[in-house]
C-alpha cells in the first residue's frame, strides 16, 4: 500500500510532465504557424534562380515564352502600362479558379491582389543573390484563414502557403530548364486503381516542395 506522500509525488510528477510536454508542443506548433497581421496570415517564401535579375525579368516580358510557361494553368492580359490581369485555371477541369490584378511597382517589384476568388494579396521582389548565384525571388503572401482551416488545408495539400511554394518551384524550373519534369503517366505495371492511389502519393510528395 502506497502512502499518501508517494501518491502526491506521483501526481505531482505526472502533472509537471504533462504541462511540460503540452508547453513544448504548443511552442513547436506556434513556431510552425505563419505570422498574423490584422487578421491576415502572412507567409514569406523565396527561391533562388540561377539567372541574373535581368534574365528573370525578361522571362516574364517575352510574351511567347511566358504563354508557353503558363500554358494550361493561367492566362495573362495587359490592362495598361503597369497593370495586368491574370486568370488562373484548374489544369484538369479548365474551370476558372481565381482572377488577380498585378501591378508592377518598380524594377523587379510587383504587387498582386485576387479580385475574383479567395481573399489574397501579395508582393514579389527580385533581389540579386550573393556570389553571383543568380536571383532571389522573394514573395510575400497575405491571405485570410484560421488555425483550423490552415491545419485542414495543410493536411489535404490545399493551402495558399503550399501553392506559393509550388509556384516558386515551378517558376524556377521553367526559367532554368524550360520545363517542369513530370513522371506521372510513365509506364508501370500498376492497375488503374493502383495508379490512381500512386498518383495521390505523387501529389503528396510534390505539394509544397521547395526544390
Amino acid at each position: 500500500m502506497r502512502s499518501n506522500a508517494t501518491r502526491l509525488a506521483l501526481v505531482g510528477a505526472a502533472t509537471v510532465t504533462a504541462v511540460g510536454v503540452g508547453r513544448a508542443v504548443t511552442r513547436r506548433r506556434r513556431r510552425h504557424q505563419p505570422q498574423r497581421e490584422d487578421g491576415w496570415y502572412v507567409v514569406r517564401r523565396a527561391v533562388t534562380v540561377d539567372r541574373p535579375v535581368a534574365a528573370v525579368i525578361s522571362f516574364w516580358t517575352e510574351r511567347e515564352r511566358l504563354d508557353r510557361a503558363l500554358a494550361e494553368w493561367a492566362t495573362l492580359e495587359q490592362i495598361d502600362g503597369n497593370r495586368w490581369r491574370c486568370v488562373s485555371r484548374d489544369p484538369d477541369t479548365g474551370a476558372t479558379e481565381w482572377r488577380a490584378e498585378i501591378t508592377v511597382t518598380g524594377p523587379g517589384r510587383l504587387r498582386w491582389q485576387v479580385t475574383g476568388g479567395p481573399e489574397q494579396q501579395g508582393t514579389v521582389e527580385l533581389v540579386p543573390a550573393p556570389q553571383g548565384r543568380g536571383t532571389e525571388i522573394r514573395a510575400e503572401l497575405r491571405y485570410r484563414s484560421g488555425p483550423l482551416r490552415r491545419a485542414l488545408g495543410l493536411a489535404a495539400g490545399d493551402e495558399p502557403d503550399l501553392r506559393l511554394r509550388d509556384t516558386l518551384r515551378r517558376v524556377k524550373s521553367l526559367i532554368e530548364c524550360g520545363q517542369l519534369i513530370d513522371t506521372r503517366r510513365d509506364p508501370s505495371g500498376r492497375s488503374p486503381a493502383q495508379e490512381r492511389r500512386t498518383d495521390e502519393i505523387r501529389q503528396r510528395l510534390t505539394t509544397g516542395g521547395r526544390a
Binding site: 524556377k172 532554368e176 530548364c177 524550360g178 513530370d182 510534390t206 509544397g208
Partner: peptide, 22 residues
C-alpha cells in the same frame, strides 16, 4: 543542365529533376 548545380558539374544535386521532392 540549367540549374546552378548542373552548371557547376554537380549533377547529382540538380535542383529541378526531382518532381516529388517533399
Amino acid at each position: 543542365g540549367g540549374c546552378w548545380y548542373c552548371r557547376t558539374e554537380q549533377y547529382s544535386l540538380c535542383d529541378n529533376s526531382n518532381p516529388q521532392p517533399v
